[in-house]
Computed example of a mutant assay.
Amino acid sequence: MFQKTRELFPVKEKGAFLAHCAISPLPRPACRALAEAAEAQMRGGGPGLVPYFGVVEALREAAARLLATRSGNVAFVKNTSEAMGMIANGYPFQPGDQILSYVHEYPANHYPWKLQEKRGVELVLLPDRPMGDGDTGRRPCGWSMEDVRRLTTERTRIIAVSHVQFTSGFAADLKELGAFCKERGIDLVVDAAQSLGALPVRPEEWNIAAVAASGWKWLFGPTGTGLFYTAPEFRRKLAHVLVGAESMVQGDDYLNHTWQPHTSARRFEYSTTPTFLAAALEACLKAAVLPYPADAVAAEIFRLQDRILATIDRDRYRPLLFSGPHRSGILSFITREDPDRIMKEAAQEGVFVSARCGYLRLAPHWCTTDEEVDRAVGVLNALDPA
């Protein structure tokens, strides 16, 4: 089913890539789309790019298929921080309102909410809990629904969490969390940088108000790209934070200063769109994401993880394991050795993994072959211990 070819992913010529939770290698169609758009501008300037001006709408349509929504609910952004900033600074908070988040969130999903303290809003942080199978020491792990219930009050307006924690790989049960928020009239905002493209993300089915994700991890896209979903009723709550010509219905009628912002998610695409990057991300979605159902992708990733777990040296690399809806594309290991050193030495042998916050992270994607997994484990097992 999965086309795990070097033609689609030339990185395979260099080695075994198991770091899709960091920056993924571009598939060949994305590189081609970038080059073609650059060629068009080189040879024709603005007029040469005219055929590419519709590419953002094509990207929105592709992203809408991935998220099972309408294209009008999806915007093209540069990164997760940009999307979260527009939500946090545009939300109609009142003094005394509360935001519930997790103490070890990635900065993109922490600082925008922290900033709201200047508006008299309280940021309440879920404590870290040992949610996985294994002692993490002082390393971050995850949070519990029991703490969510305990810390939610009548003043809680937003719950903002990552679908998958970038350190441990702990995944939130978004279906359960979304149902909880629906019962209490709370807006659920999700950072899906570490899940979109690897796990199913169904915002309309799961009562998620907003989803923000970077494009360069599990979506295989170029850096500087991201996707931003908002539910229509949530979008109507948000004040405008960043505005420009592209925010307005009149578009390039630049001297028409009538206040006519788009009511769709296009309102968040406020200024000159990086056409090259949009074309590349669209190519990634069409060539490497949409051809395979999200459930099938997750199942293949978990199969590859199980293959890793069957042969890796458990005395040297102790896995942090999650079950059911808390499992993700990130397989984190605890080791007595320096994870950064292991990462660097493995790269010298053509095996690419990542290290974060005391964990060694292995993150195969559907494009990873069994042979690449075996090679990676063999290299890790054979590295000289510190």
Rank of each mutant, 00 (worst) to 15 (best):
E371R: 14
T368A: 15
G358L: 03
C357E: 15
L362R: 09
T369I: 13
V373E: 12
L360P: 00
T369H: 13
V353L: 02
L380A: 11
V373Y: 12
D374E: 15
V373C: 11
L383I: 00
A382Y: 00
R356G: 00
D374F: 04
Q348L: 14
V351N: 07
C357F: 11
H365A: 15
P364I: 10
H365N: 14
E349G: 02
P364L: 07
N381L: 06
P364F: 03
T368N: 13
A355N: 12
D370V: 11
A347D: 09
T368G: 06
N381R: 03
G350K: 05
L360R: 10
L380G: 10
T368Y: 03
D384S: 14
L362P: 02
R356Q: 13
P385F: 04
D374P: 01
V379G: 10
N381F: 06
L383G: 01
A386R: 04
E371T: 09
E371C: 00
V353S: 05
D384G: 05
G358K: 07
A376F: 01
H365R: 07
E371I: 01
R375V: 00
G350C: 08
A376R: 09
A382Q: 09
R361Y: 01
A355G: 13
D384E: 15
H365D: 15
W366S: 04
V379M: 06
V377E: 06
E372G: 11
T369R: 15
S354Q: 09
Y359G: 07
V351Y: 06
V353Q: 05
A376H: 11
R375L: 10
Q348H: 10
A363P: 02
L360T: 08
L360Y: 05
R361G: 00
Q348P: 00
V351S: 08
G350S: 10
